[in-house]
Simulated scan of single mutants.
Amino acid sequence: MLDTSREQNPAPSKEPRGCLFALSQPPLMIFLTVIGVLLLMASVHDLFLL
């Protein structure tokens, strides 16, 4: 016979964190900012100094 009684309450499932949560992390934002600044500096160098 299958026991269908529940002695414990199931833990509430946490909502999965999406991409916006990952983008809000400071180390990732610092990394993306550094990459963006390097790309900007390279493009300005190519446009105005070459």
Rank of each mutant, 00 (worst) to 15 (best):
T33V: 06
M29I: 10
L38K: 04
L49G: 03
T33Q: 08
S24C: 06
L38S: 09
G36V: 01
I35A: 13
S43F: 03
D46W: 04
L32F: 04
L32A: 10
S43N: 03
L49W: 04
C19I: 14
P12M: 13
Q25F: 07
V37S: 11
F21D: 15
T33F: 09
L40E: 10
F21H: 15
L47Q: 11
E15K: 15
M41C: 13
I35W: 06
P12I: 13
F21M: 06
V34G: 09
F48I: 01
P27E: 03
S13R: 12
L20G: 07
M29P: 00
P27W: 05
L47F: 05
L28E: 05
S13E: 13
K14H: 01
S13M: 07
Q25I: 06
L39G: 07
Q25T: 11
K14T: 02
S13Y: 07
V44R: 00
L47H: 05
F48W: 08
A22V: 08
L38P: 00
L40N: 14
P26Q: 04
F48G: 03
V44L: 06
Q25K: 08
L39I: 08
L23Q: 03
S24N: 07
S13Q: 13
L28F: 10
I30K: 08
C19Q: 10
F31G: 13
L39E: 03
G36I: 02
I35E: 07
T33E: 10
F21N: 15
P27T: 01
L39Q: 07
I30A: 14
F21G: 14
L39D: 08
C19G: 14
L40T: 14
T33S: 13
L49N: 11
C19T: 12
